[in-house]
Design a protein around this nucleic acid. Structure first.
Length: 511
RNA sequence: GGUCUGUUCGUCUAGGGGUUAGGACACCAGAUUUUCAUUCUGGUAACACGGGUUCGAUUCCCGUACAGACUACCA
């Protein structure tokens, strides 16, 4: 059986889109499952669109989500270089081969001449003017010009492109692993430019040549490539590489959460979720886009979420580690239809992965946040906080954001709760409780509770009636984790201080 | 406009000629939690439409509608 070699081949034209990460993931899963090789190739044949830093960004993003590159940019390998701009000399020789075999030709038409041709055809009623088997005979190319003229133009260094000579009548067939047989008539394909006038190949040529040279066995890419796949098939055929042609799998697109259309950065911005794996600062606009990493998504959760966008194992299991994904993955189970991007599901996966962590691991997240705030805290205390906060967080940063009261006494109180729960009974109980606390030798959740119950029963007031008021004075809010545990963690002295402060500031308001 | 691809609950999807069309997320309700969250239980909710083929179609075929992609010397 053929050795499995797959590639992820992004262009460094900006940040890596989350859809690109999924494409990389599917490639990676297949490679790992079939003991193959995962290759990273950078398709930077368009110098105009090159964005500095994009390549580094791609590398970092893949590393963060755990997609390991076996060969290619950043790691090297037997088919180096893996950056197409560095492979420039390779492509012309294959273009030449196509010209020599009569499957491609030189075209000297200028932008203006092309424009004139399109206009002329449009007025003649052709909806979509193309450079094709019919129109090429009216243009300036090596098919219409005399051999001598062509030679002179080339020697005079006249700018030219190399175009594929697409046959007029031919059924081009392609067996896609996801979509089955796809047939396109060659009359629908135009004479695509293979080599640009700057000497760089276009995607089509570079892609086919490199996939062949790098012995790629499977091309897994986005559905946007499906329309040009027949063209690639033609290229393999004319280059004499039909037997080596990789298997194709065209992935369904990622769609925007509401409405229709493919997922764009705009949608993500509007709905307030990331679309890039890690933070990206646009070098031109200096605009910063928050990444999934910085937003608090765990890489393993993101991967699990992404894997399920368009694929499923056919079982009820939903939580999959990377190793489990590698085992369960199969191209056959990839869906055909476009997939709407639902950030809720991503959050749910994140929660699941976060909860599976130990208190100690969660404590590290909290400690991270605290160090940014210059707050010191022992590991033990952080772990204790983590243990009572673990069921109520979606992101690691929630530990701090929802638990600030562990470190800062409230300065304001939720007015809604205060107006409903802060009453004479509450004040009576809190005053008595405050007096009772100093007599306690030890202070923990059980004693805090027992003492409170003792006070309330002596006063003949139901504990439940005033618990909200107590919570309000300790945390400033009406909702939160187990109050007795909270008090244990912040300690007796702090509890007393907070009750006193609340009594002082809230009494005035309610009176 | 043309070509290609697609269409099962709001979303991700399972399924497949005869099923109470299954699960998950989200949503709603109840229970637990004297709060909130969690957890548990339950609920709402789908085969785009029209023709065939068939005893029978959501499933197969053909149309239609809708959607998306592509239609550059961008990838």
């Amino acid at each position: 059986m053929r050795e499995v070699r797959v590639r992820f081949a992004p262009s460094p034209t900006g940040a890596l889109h989350i859809g690109g990460v999924r494409t990389a993931l599917y490639n990676f899963l297949l490679a790992r499952q079939l003991k193959g090789t995962m290759i990273l190739r950078i398709e930077d044949t368009d110098q105009n669109r090159y964005v500095p830093g994009a390549e580094e960004y791609i590398l970092q993003s893949l590393a963060w989500v755990g997609i390991k590159i076996d060969e290619g940019v950043g790691v090297g390998g037997p088919y180096a270089p893996y950056r197409q701009s560095e492979r420039k000399p390779i492509y012309m020789q294959y273009a030449q081969q196509l010209i020599d075999s009569g499957n491609a030709y030189y075209a000297f038409d200028t932008e203006d001449e092309l424009e004139v041709m399109r206009e002329r055809l449009k007025t003649a009623g052709v909806a979509l003017p193309q450079y094709n088997s019919i129109t090429r005979m009216q243009m300036r190319n090596s098919l219409t010009l005399l051999e001598e003229e062509v030679k002179q133009l080339l020697e005079a260094k006249t700018p030219y492109v190399v175009r594929l000579k697409v046959p007029r009548k031919e059924e081009v067939r392609l067996n896609d692993m996801i979509r089955g047989w796809v047939m396109v008539h060659s009359s629908q394909i135009d004479d695509k430019v293979l080599m640009k006038s700057d000497g760089m190949p276009t995607y089509h040529l570079a892609n086919v040549v490199d996939d062949y040279l790098m012995k790629i066995s499977h091309v897994i890419r986005g559905e946007e490539w499906l329309p040009s796949a027949p063209l690639h098939v033609l290229l393999y055929k004319y280059l004499g590489w039909e037997k080596e042609m990789p298997q194709f799998a065209h992935l369904p697109l990622l769609l925007k959460p509401t409405g229709d259309g493919k997922l764009s950065k705009r949608d993500a911005d509007q709905m307030g979720f990331p679309i890039f794996p890690i933070d990206w600062i646009d070098p031109n606009t200096k605009e910063k886009a928050i990444g999934f990493r910085e937003a608090g998504y765990l890489p393993e959760a993101l991967i699990n979420f992404l894997a399920f966008l368009g694929w499923n194992p056919g079982t009820q299991q939903e939580i999959f580690s990377l190793d489990e994904l590698i085992n369960a993955f199969s191209v056959e189970r990839i869906g055909k239809a476009g997939t709407k991007f639902d950030i809720h599901k991503a959050q749910w996966f994140n929660q699941q992965y976060l909860r599976a962590k130990s208190d100690e691991a969660l404590a590290e997240y909290l400690l991270d946040s605290l160090s940014k705030e210059n707050i010191s805290c022992t590991k033990e205390k952080a772990a204790k906080i983590a243990s009572i906060m673990r069921e109520r967080i979606t992101f690691p940063k929630d530990l701090w954001e929802h638990g600030k009261f562990f470190f800062h006494a409230p300065t304001t109180f939720d007015e809604n709760v205060a107006s409903k729960r802060w009453n004479d009974d509450a004040v009576k109980v809190l005053n008595a409780y405050k007096i009772e606390l100093p007599t306690l030798a030890t202070f923990d959740a059980p004693t805090a509770k027992a003492t409170l119950e003792k006070v309330t029963s002596e006063l003949g007031i139901g504990t439940g009636k005033i618990l909200q008021a107590l919570r309000l004075s300790i945390t400033g809010a009406g909702a939160g984790p187990d109050l007795m545990m909270v008090m244990e963690i912040i300690g007796k002295d702090e509890v007393m201080k907070r009750i006193e402060y609340a009594l002082k500031t809230l009494n005035v308001k309610v009176a």
